[in-house]
């Protein structure tokens, strides 16, 4: 009886909502539906910061759709993907999370209990804007100065499974920098150790470095990718421009793709195609809204959206291409060997 009453209520609400949303036929399939947005991070986390304005603006774009947000933290973002992959009910489930799980899947790490190629990609909200910085006391003003240093540099990364470890290890494999990589140093400790002169080099998003750059404690020397950087970082050389001669173009392409895909938005594998198309249309409308851009600007967040088809193409090229995973892992292994002092030849 209760179920019948509820069904009738939802039917009525759905009918009313469908009528109200008829004005925007592209979004009509979502009228009266419920969307559960799984945010791959705890409340107040970086991913939450990117996701919440998106959720609020999506509510405005889809006024007749019930939108519920759920924080699912854990496993370096993996848990949110696992949760979304298994969603099969009538509720539409969408995940917003960072791109670490792409690395996990490519490297075959245990947490990758999902397959990103099965997701329906709706878009990416930003790119990762990764830059390499060195501590100011090192006496180096630019990449050329750093490369000319004789001494081995201490590079700090957050964990063995983190993107920063992959990027830093590849940096060692693709360039002439001599790095000793120390893992398990979180962002805050790393900054303090750079100020103290105990850590020389690290990689993070450009915005993450701004206070320390302003304090004169660190100096940016390199950007990982080509696109989507703020004007202050636009003059930095790219990884592609300083990589050792003979580095396969595919490796640079992998690193740049990983840099470009930040804060992914994807629908569960069970989502019907017409709903995916509608979600992509809604995503395009959200990111085009000036109030959404203003909300990101107010939070010091970089808005650099990529549409769903492009994201799907890049993820298929990364996680669905065995050669990409092979190259990443081969150069990573070589970089690890170099960092541990072996005389490795990074040209697998």
């Amino acid at each position: 009886m209760t179920r019948a009453i509820l069904a009738a209520f939802f039917l009525l609400a759905g009918t009313l909502a469908a009528g109200a949303q008829a004005a925007d036929p592209a979004l009509a399939p979502l009228a009266g539906r419920t969307i559960r947005i799984v945010i791959g991070g705890g409340p107040g986390s970086g991913t939450d910061g990117y996701a919440r304005p998106f959720v609020e603006t999506l509510k405005e774009v889809l006024p007749d759709t019930t939108i519920l947000a759920q924080n699912v933290d854990g496993g370096g973002g993996a848990l949110a993907y696992v949760e979304t992959q298994s969603a099969t009910g009538a509720v539409i489930t969408v995940v917003i999370s960072h791109s670490s799980p792409i690395y996990h899947q490519m490297r075959g790490i245990e947490t990758a209990a999902f397959d990103l190629t099965r997701f329906h990609w709706i878009g990416a909200l930003t790119n990762n804007q990764r830059v390499v910085v060195v501590r100011s006391g090192l006496g180096a003003d630019d990449y050329a100065d750093v490369a000319a240093l004789d001494e081995e540099m201490v590079a700090a990364v957050t964990s063995a499974t983190s993107p920063s470890n992959v990027e830093t290890t590849l940096l060692g494999a693709l360039t002439d920098l001599r790095l000793r990589i120390v893992v398990d140093i979180d962002d805050d400790l790393r900054s303090a150790l750079m100020m103290a002169g105990d850590v020389d080099l690290a990689i993070n998003s450009f915005y993450g470095w701004v206070p320390l750059i302003d304090a004169g404690a660190v100096q940016p020397i390199l950007r990982i990718g080509e696109e989507g950087y703020p004007p202050e970082a636009a003059s930095l050389p790219t990884l592609a421009s300083i990589a050792r001669p003979g580095t396969p173009a595919k490796v640079i392409e992998i690193v740049e793709s990983l840099n470009k895909l930040g804060r992914l938005v994807g629908a569960a594998p069970a989502t019907p195609p017409e709903i995916v198309a509608t979600l992509r249309a809604a995503f395009a409308e959200v990111v085009a809204r000036p109030d959404f851009a203003a909300a990101y600007a107010a939070r010091d967040l970089a808005l650099a959206p990529t549409d769903g088809e492009e994201v799907a193409r890049r993820i298929a090229g990364l996680t669905g291409d065995p050669q990409a995973a092979y190259l990443l892992n081969a150069f990573f292994a070589c970089g690890e060997a170099e960092a541990s002092g072996s005389d490795a030849d990074c040209n697998p």
Partner: peptide, 9 residues
């Protein structure tokens, strides 16, 4: 949990 140093659970 994950041992951040080795990446092992």
């Amino acid at each position: 949990g994950v041992d951040f140093r080795s990446g092992e659970a």
